[in-house]
């Protein structure tokens, strides 16, 4: 695990990987969403509005995956003191927040023609909104902490602890529709029970999800590279100032 702890070695792999993931993921996302929206079938009940699914569902998954990434990185940072873990965790925050916001916005737009409401405070919608606010808090905290102890190391220990604690919202989001009565429907895709989405809609949806995940990976790499370069510059400045 520590083999890639060396930023130089990490960058050697990250540099070509960023473009590769971005291009493959972006292309896949666009093609699958376009296929679903333009050529996929309408739904027997909802009609055309079901096409919002191709962005709503991948955005929901990645909004949650982003915080899973933060939680795993935070654990690696706190337990093994992995030098890149903090950087990786912080890099997940903005893309996670944007995907969570897309999930909320498209869900609201989808809710109006299907349920008859833009917003309702049911368990699923509320817990997803909480996730979005957790991202905002995490970003504010990481920035504040970096400015506060930039002198010492900028390790971001508080941020990592917050990242771990915030992870308790993930099972709440997931199980909200199973354990509580909600307006949001139950889960359509599960490992145990398979999918209740017809194959003609499921394949473009899964393709879009994979594409969005790869794109997410590319964005995380970009943000990690930006922070590593910024840190390098800062260190240099400080050394010059100390002379």
């Amino acid at each position: 695990m520590h083999a890639y702890a060396n930023p130089a070695r990490f960058l050697k792999i990250a540099r070509p990987l960023t473009g590769l993931l971005g291009l493959v993921g972006g292309t896949m996302l666009i093609l699958c969403v376009a296929y679903g929206v333009l050529f996929g079938p309408a739904d027997y009940l909802q009609g055309e509005t079901v096409r919002i699914m191709y962005i709503h569902v991948p955005a929901a998954w990645l909004g949650m995956a982003g915080w899973s990434g933060i939680a795993v990185a935070s654990a690696m940072q706190l337990i093994w003191r992995h030098p890149l873990a903090g950087v990786a965790g912080r890099a997940c925050a903005l893309p996670g927040a944007v995907f969570a916001a897309i999930c909320l916005a498209t869900g609201s737009i989808w809710g109006r023609p299907t349920w008859g409401t833009w917003w309702e405070w049911d368990g699923r919608l509320t817990s997803m909104l909480v996730l979005f606010f957790l991202y905002l808090a995490y970003m504010a905290l990481s920035r504040a902490e970096r400015e506060a102890d930039g002198e010492t190391s900028g390790e971001g220990r508080m941020t990592a602890i917050f990242g771990l604690i915030g992870a308790i919202n993930l099972p709440i989001i997931h199980y909200s529709v199973l354990w509580w009565r909600t307006l949001h429907q139950g889960q359509s895709i599960s490992v145990m029970k398979g999918s209740s989405i017809d194959a003609s809609m499921l394949w473009p949806l899964l393709g879009a999800a994979v594409g969005a995940s790869l794109l997410f990976g590319a964005i995380v790499l970009m943000r990690m590279r930006a922070e590593l370069a910024d840190t390098k510059l800062e260190m240099r400045m400080r050394r010059l100032a100390a002379l």
């Binding site: 969403v33 929206v37 919002i52 916005a105 498209t106 737009i109 989808w110």
Partner: peptide, 10 residues
């Protein structure tokens, strides 16, 4: 219109 609005945001 709702489909277009959703992608118009995303």
């Amino acid at each position: 219109d709702f489909v277009i609005a959703a992608y118009g945001v995303s």
